[in-house]
Amino acid sequence: MKNLQDIMKAAQNVQEELQKAQAKLDTIEVMGTAGGGLVNVRASAKGRIIKIDIDPSLLVPDDKEMLEDLLAAAFNDARAKADAASNEEMQKMQSALPLPPGFKLPF
């Protein structure tokens, strides 16, 4: 029965570490850019959008479609960087835990 208690304690530790890692992800910021820096989207590694910066030169009614494309590109760039930062943090957390070889956490 002691082995089961050890497993339960290890599972609780994993859950606590996962919660800490998830909280940390919201403090890591990434910057997505498009149009050579004309559009910037700042986001957390959790994917929360923090700020959007649009160069005033893009605020021309005739360029509406281009601005929309640049915003989408900047959002996608920020999302990709957020995913990369999240994966990196989760790998750090997973490597610090005493998990059996081949065991993967669900993320």
Rank of each mutant, 00 (worst) to 15 (best):
K92H: 09
P61G: 06
A21P: 05
A43E: 03
N3T: 09
I54H: 08
F103E: 06
G36R: 11
D62C: 07
A74C: 03
Q15V: 03
I54E: 09
D55K: 08
D69F: 07
T33R: 15
M31I: 13
Q12R: 15
L25N: 01
A10Y: 03
T27L: 08
I54K: 08
A72K: 14
M90Q: 12
A82I: 01
D69V: 05
N3R: 14
S95I: 00
E88H: 08
K64N: 07
E89P: 00
K51V: 04
S57L: 08
D77L: 10
K46P: 02
Q5N: 15
I7M: 13
P106F: 00
Q15W: 09
L99V: 02
D77S: 11
P106K: 01
Q22L: 11
K24R: 12
V60R: 14
P98L: 11
N40G: 10
E17D: 09
G35Y: 13
E68N: 12
M90W: 11
L70A: 01
A21W: 03
L38V: 02
V30L: 04
M90I: 10
E68Y: 04
P100N: 08
L58M: 13
E89K: 02
L25T: 00
E16D: 15
T27E: 12
S95H: 05
F103G: 03
P101E: 05
L97K: 04
M1Y: 12
R48S: 14
Q94M: 09
D62K: 15
I54W: 08
P56V: 03
A43D: 03
Q12A: 15
V60H: 11
P100H: 04
N13M: 15
M1K: 13
N3G: 04
P56T: 05
L70G: 03
D53R: 01
K64A: 11
Q15A: 13
Q22T: 07
L4K: 15
G32P: 06
T27F: 01
L18V: 15
M93Y: 07
F103N: 03
Q15C: 05
A73Q: 04
Q12F: 10
E65H: 10
A45H: 00
I50Y: 13
G35P: 07
S95K: 11
D6G: 14
M90D: 02
V41T: 05
I54M: 09
G32D: 07
N3F: 13
K20W: 00
K46S: 14
G35E: 12
M1I: 09
V39G: 06
M1S: 14
E89A: 07
Q12H: 13
T27W: 00
S86D: 00
F75I: 14
T33I: 12
P106S: 01
M66A: 08
V60M: 10
L70S: 02
G35Q: 11
G36A: 11
L38H: 06
N87L: 11
D55E: 10
G37W: 10
V14I: 15
D69N: 13
A72L: 14
Q12S: 14
A10I: 05
T33L: 14
S44W: 04
L67Q: 10
A34Y: 03
I28N: 05
G32L: 06
R79M: 11
K24L: 09
F107M: 13
S95G: 02
Q5W: 13
A85V: 00
A11D: 07
N76V: 00
Q5G: 14
M8L: 15
L99N: 01
L38Y: 07
